[in-house]
């Protein structure tokens, strides 16, 4: 590793760090959760590249192993986040749907109760009239 290559790799690391910061800005800006997950995935890839550069700049072989593990964990994070958010969304949707169905049932009950009261009232009237007739 010559002096020139080492300093070149330092410059590359600085540029990559700036890119990670830009990704973070985009992550904060993203209006929906999927934008944020894409940015987190991208930050993971950039960090894998940075660790690979460090592995040859410091000439430490074990950093390549960390590189592999980091790639795997970053992929796992994306999968888990997607599954969790889909589950949360479907759960909320199901609950809203159930609430709507409950409301509809309540409406039907109210209408049937109202009908029953009306029927009772007419029946009372008829019996009253009938009793009046009997009295007459």
């Amino acid at each position: 590793m010559t002096e020139f290559v080492s300093s070149f790799l330092t410059v590359i690391l600085i540029i990559l760090a700036v890119m990670v910061l830009l990704c973070l800005v985009r992550c904060v800006m993203g209006p929906r959760v999927t934008d944020r997950i894409v940015c987190v995935n991208m930050i993971g890839t950039l960090v894998v590249f940075m660790i690979a550069i460090l592995a040859i700049k410091l000439e430490e072989g074990y950093l390549a192993d960390i590189c592999v593990i980091y790639a795997m964990i970053s992929f796992l994070a994306v999968v888990v986040l997607c599954k969790v958010y889909l589950g949360v969304y479907l759960d909320r949707k199901n609950r809203e749907f159930a609430a709507l169905e409950n409301d509809a049932e309540d409406l039907e009950n109210v209408e049937s109760i109202g009908n029953a009261e009306a029927v009772n009232a007419t029946m009372n009237k008829e019996t009253k009239e009938g009793s009046e007739n009997v009295n007459a």
Partner: peptide, 9 residues
Amino acid sequence: LISKLEVCT
């Protein structure tokens, strides 16, 4: 997975 999440939600 991300595009599926986006289309579903």
